[in-house]
Design a protein around this nucleic acid. Structure first.
Length: 596
RNA sequence: GGACCUGUGGUGUAGCCAGGUUUAACACACCGGACUGUCACUCCGGAGAUCGCGGGUUCAAAUCCCGUCGGGUCCGCCA
């Protein structure tokens, strides 16, 4: 051959960046062929890379060789093109495309790699939604989709923003091990057999909690980490086995120092999507959140707040209410403004919904021009009806819902009914970012199952100073120096100030009935570390996947994780988990047995 | 562990509840042909599914029943 091989093409530009200002430039682009419109003569090919799409034009008269190649190009072929950016002829500008004012007239083209026909359309806005199994099986194709690429980009930008902020605040990013020690409390651990010590196991961290506290003793003072956390619990739309937290701990601080830093991080991250959230965030105590919304993570984007009706029905003859109040329970209601028109069927569904959360029943009252309409009105006196309607601010057209039960059931059932109605009645505004600190959680909770007191957060939480005397008299009343950050009803952040005083720590462990030996066995290293000069410290962790999910407007964290698992814990692309070679098991000193 | 929903060509659906005129329909994608300005290109033609799997009922099953597997949502669980 005497013919000279032309110099290989080298990428000069990205597709999505080309604008009218580039007209006249000769460019070389590389990417994936998205659509190929062959008009017999001229061929239009939409070329896509991660920056966007640009229209390439192949004219058989201008460049017959390139046109010849373009005829054979199919969806998702990887190609390189070389040509001149030109203005589109009048009337053919595409305003829906950022690059729609220009097109590239191709003089030379190469197929870098052919592709099989994809099992689903990659970037067709008009195509119906693709089955998620299929997307997960071919995740590398799914991730080519603009939406998914935007999610990955957003996640990257958010991580960068957080890191920049934390660096400016003089935090050190420190990595902690993935193979650590198993601790039975909390979530179920993922276990890893220790080959060098048959019969023993490592655990994958549920969070770096103990290690970051140790780093405080080590004098790191300000630590953070994008920490992978692993919990072997059932998955949900917002829960994967493995997830990412922005984990942080600070020495020589009080609660408000941690809250302020957290607000700064969140603010920096939210700016990535152009949202400037005002700080400081609103704060609400746990007690108030439970009283007003029946939840420790209230969605404050809409009303339907709880109203306590104990006073109204203090002397009622209505047995269902009277009995509950006599037993120390609560009667609480919400006013669903303008919802009196719900059908009988809808009301029944609502009651069934409340019952699925433990309520024995739910009374409803439609406010009509003739007064309250309800199956139970007849059990209430005239005065009670008036006081009830007034207390709830009832107006004609409203629907009043009342649950009488234990405080726990009222909160749970009425709280869920509130959320359900908020959605059903369209009360939830879009593009609203209600960040809310919920503070002063109880330190302990009564565990019905074990009939003893448990730590609500973890046993290294500091009780609030003013509640210290209660440790000896009424531990269940003790509030911890605990805080959660809630965004639109989602728990995003959880943290606490930790105990650094030995006397308090011992008392706390005593209350949750954890004998010293057990403490030594499980967290001995931390307890020991604390004996060598632990600074006062506290911290928190941000649920990064959830935050990105909410920022991206996605319904599941699977859509902001590159390679997520299905809700039954399977990786459909890799086909994990699988059985392993018996030799691997033998190395680990493990033997499988039938599940009994 | 429990409840509910779901599975039909490569993809998304219809058909299922009232079993048989269905040779399982439609759209997109795919393959071939035509077409020089489209961008959901258009037009013509073609190929492609024994209906998740197994069993049962019936003269006859995508359709009814039982079991099973995969997927989703929720409850339990997630300090």
């Amino acid at each position: 051959m005497t013919e000279q091989t032309p110099a290989p093409l080298r990428r000069s530009d990205t597709c999505g960046a080309l604008r009218a200002s580039d007209i006249g430039r000769t460019v070389t682009l590389m990417g994936w062929s998205q659509t190929n419109r062959d008009h017999g003569g001229v061929i239009f090919l939409d070329l896509r890379d991660r920056s966007g799409v640009v229209q390439c034009v192949f004219n058989p008269l201008e460049a017959p060789a390139a046109h010849e190649v373009a005829q054979r190009v199919r969806s998702e072929f990887v190609i390189a093109v070389h040509g001149v950016v030109q203005p589109r002829p009048a009337g053919t500008v595409n305003p829906r495309l950022p690059t729609g004012e220009v097109e590239v007239h191709i003089s030379r083209m190469e197929v870098l790699n052919a592709a099989k026909t994809p099992p689903f359309p990659i970037n067709d806005d008009n195509a119906p939604e693709v089955d998620e199994n299929l997307r997960l099986r071919y995740r590398y194709l799914d991730l080519r989709n603009t939406r998914m690429q935007q999610n990955l980009l957003l996640r990257h930008k958010a991580a960068q923003a957080a890191r920049a902020y934390l660096d400016a605040q003089e935090f050190w990013e420190v990595e902690t091990p993935l193979l650590i020690k198993s601790t039975p409390e909390g979530a179920r651990d993922f276990l890893v057999p220790a080959r060098l010590r048959a019969g023993e196991f490592y655990a994958l961290p549920q969070s770096p909690q103990l290690l970051k506290q140790t780093l405080m003793v080590a004098g790191v003072e300000r630590y953070y980490q994008f920490a992978r956390c692993l919990r072997d619990e059932d998955l949900r739309g917002d829960r994967q086995f493995e997830f990412t937290q922005i984990d942080l701990e600070m020495a020589f601080v009080e609660r408000d120092d941690v809250l302020t830093v957290t607000e700064g991080i969140i603010q920096a991250i939210m700016r990535v999507i152009g949202v400037d959230v005002p700080t400081p965030f609103l704060r609400m105590t746990f007690v108030e959140a439970m009283a007003r919304f029946g939840s420790d993570k209230p969605d404050t984007r809409f009303g339907l707040e709880f109203v306590d009706l104990a006073g109204v029905f203090a002397a009622t003859e209505f047995k269902a209410f009277a009995a509950v109040l006599a037993a120390g329970g609560q009667v609480k209601g919400i006013n669903a403004k303008g919802a009196a028109g719900l059908s009988r069927r809808e009301l029944d569904d609502l009651i069934a919904y409340a019952q699925s959360f433990g309520a024995k029943g739910m009374a409803y009252f439609q406010v009509t021009p003739e007064g309250l309409k309800s199956p139970v009105t007849k059990f209430l006196s005239e005065e009670e009806r008036t006081a009830f309607a007034t207390t709830l601010g009832a107006e004609v057209g409203d629907l009043l819902l009342v649950i009488a039960d234990t405080p726990h059931v009222v909160a749970q059932a009425l709280g869920r009914v509130r959320l359900h109605l908020g959605e059903k009645l369209g009360l939830i505004p879009e593009n609203t970012w209600n960040f809310l600190w919920v503070v002063d959680f109880p330190m302990f909770a009564w565990n019905e199952e074990t009939q003893q007191i448990d730590a609500m957060h973890h046993p290294f939480t500091m009780p609030k100073a003013e509640d210290l005397p209660l440790l000896d008299t009424d531990p269940l009343q003790v509030r911890g120096d605990l805080y959660d950050l809630v965004l639109n009803g989602n728990e995003l952040v959880s943290g606490s100030i930790r105990v650094h005083r030995r006397d308090i720590q011992e008392r706390v462990l005593e209350i949750i009935n954890m004998p010293l030996e057990q403490v030594r066995e499980r967290f001995g290293f931390l307890v020991e570390a604390f004996e060598y000069g632990a600074p006062p410290h506290g911290g928190m962790a941000i649920g990064f996947d959830r935050l990105i999910m909410l920022m991206a407007g996605e319904k599941t964290i699977r859509d902001v994780i590159a390679f997520p698992k299905t809700s039954s814990g399977a990786d459909l692309m890799m086909d994990a988990p699988t059985t392993v070679d018996p030799l691997q098991l033998r190395d680990l000193g493990l033997q499988l047995r039938k599940r009994g």
